[in-house]
Structures are given as structure tokens and as C-alpha cells.
Write a protein that binds this DNA or RNA. Structure first.
Length: 237
DNA sequence: GCGACAG
DNA sequence: ATCTTGTCGC
């Protein structure tokens, strides 16, 4: 056999999965992305997030009103995840869960916010863009960490905004959303599809109550997914 | 060749 | 993301 096992950086992927094909698919879908406002007086927003445990994904979609934040609908599902996490290919791990939930909503959300990037992506097709194109809905990407790009500007105070630039392109904004003074890291916002970076920031800004770094609907989805997972922890034994 | 690397 | 006790703070 071989010598000491080296830590595996590249997770094992199913035999039928071809990483080059997935990247090619992203390049193709990226051509369909439209970074321009195509929302008419948006009234409702959907926040999406997934929690993981082994081969299963616990997803939640929370639909809320944009004006006062009232939650209109919370949908949950448990699904087998087909892919390990690979930087740049998050959508192939996350979107199967969203595909289960999206058809179930009765609110027909005007905009979708995904816990993942939009333009901030090596091929300019983060999971938010991928979802937006596939579901044909205005979509915004929000993350707690940066996949790529540089923050241009200061984020000294809460409310501060700085541009995210990569390869000379402005891909989105870093926004210090949390009102807690010890909130060190900002939230990274980038347009996914059928929306601009400015409008994305404006919408996210209006959804940040200040108690959480993430916009409320996404945070609510995060909590719902976590609860669902805990529930399965107890029952599945 | 060596690191970095959304969730 | 997840593995994990206590702990600081509103």
C-alpha cells in the first residue's frame, strides 16, 4: 500500500460525477444570468438555508413580507445530498434541497435569498445565481465568508458598506449589518439573477433586524433547518 | 509548485 | 457546514 495517509483535501465524489462537466454546466448557465433589476414592487421574500448531517440535508424555506417582516410560510424537507462540499460547486450540493421546497410554496415569493454567493464566484455563478436562473426568480446571494475577492473600503462602524472586487470587477458588497459592537465580520451580499448589486444590498439592509448578521428570513431558515436536524437526531434512534 | 477555498 | 464545555453578555 501507500505511506502515511495524507489528509484528503478533495472529498470523494460519486463515480458518475464529473467535476469538469459541472464546471462546464456553470459556464453555460452563467451566460443566462442577468444583473439588472427585474422585480416589480416586490412584496415578499424567501430565505433559504440547509443544515447537514452525513448524507442528509435538512432544508428550510421561509417566506416573509418585505415591509414588516411577517413570516407567511415555513417549509422544511429532508433530502439525500448527492455531493460533498467543494469550493465553487456548492450549488450542486445545496440546490437539490431547494428544488424540493420551491414548488411547495403557495406565496410565490418575489425574491429569493440564498445562503451562498451570487456573482461572487470563480465563474460568476454562485448558488444564488444558479438558483435564480433555474427557478427564473430574482435572487440574492448572502454569505458570512468570502469565497474570493477583496474588500475595498472600511467597515469600522455598523452600517458601513464596502465593495467586493475581484479581477477588476465589482461583484457585490460587504455590509456590516449586525448592531452588536462585537460583530467583527460583515455579511457579503452579491446579486444572483434579475437584480443589481445596489438593489440586493438595499433589500438585505431592510431585512437585517440587527440581532443577527444575516437577513431575518435567512436566519429564520437557518434556525428552522437546525431544529429539523435536531428533531431527527432524537427520533432516528 | 504552494496556498486559498461560500456551505 | 460539523465536531463540542463552558462562558461572557444583553
Amino acid at each position: 500500500m501507500s505511506g502515511p495517509e495524507l489528509a484528503r483535501r478533495v472529498p470523494t465524489v460519486p463515480d458518475h460525477v464529473d467535476l469538469d462537466e459541472l464546471e462546464a454546466e456553470q459556464r453555460e448557465l452563467a451566460r443566462k444570468v442577468r444583473i439588472e433589476d427585474d422585480l416589480d414592487d416586490p412584496e415578499t421574500v424567501a430565505g433559504f438555508d440547509v443544515g447537514y448531517q452525513g448524507p442528509r440535508g435538512f432544508g428550510a424555506l421561509v417566506v416573509a413580507r418585505l415591509d414588516d417582516g411577517t413570516i407567511l410560510e415555513t417549509l422544511e424537507t429532508v433530502t439525500e445530498v448527492p455531493m460533498p462540499y467543494i469550493p465553487g460547486l456548492l450549488a450542486f450540493r445545496e440546490l437539490p434541497v431547494l428544488r424540493e421546497l420551491w414548488p411547495e410554496t403557495t406565496e410565490d415569493p418575489d425574491v429569493l435569498i440564498v445562503d451562498g454567493g451570487g456573482l461572487i464566484h470563480p465563474r460568476r455563478l454562485g448558488s444564488a445565481s444558479h438558483a435564480g436562473v433555474e427557478l427564473d426568480v430574482p435572487a440574492i446571494g448572502v454569505t458570512k465568508n468570502l469565497l474570493l475577492g477583496e474588500v475595498h473600503g472600511s467597515l469600522a462602524d455598523q452600517g458601513d458598506v464596502a465593495e467586493i472586487v475581484d479581477d477588476g470587477e465589482r461583484l457585490g458588497y460587504a455590509y456590516r449589518s449586525c448592531t452588536r459592537p462585537n460583530a467583527k465580520h460583515p455579511v457579503y451580499v452579491s446579486p444572483g439573477h434579475r437584480i443589481t448589486a445596489e438593489t440586493s444590498l438595499e433589500i438585505v439592509r431592510g431585512l437585517c433586524s440587527g440581532r443577527s448578521k444575516l437577513p431575518d428570513p435567512v436566519q429564520a431558515a437557518h434556525r428552522a433547518a437546525a431544529r429539523l436536524k435536531r428533531y431527527h437526531d432524537q427520533v432516528d434512534r
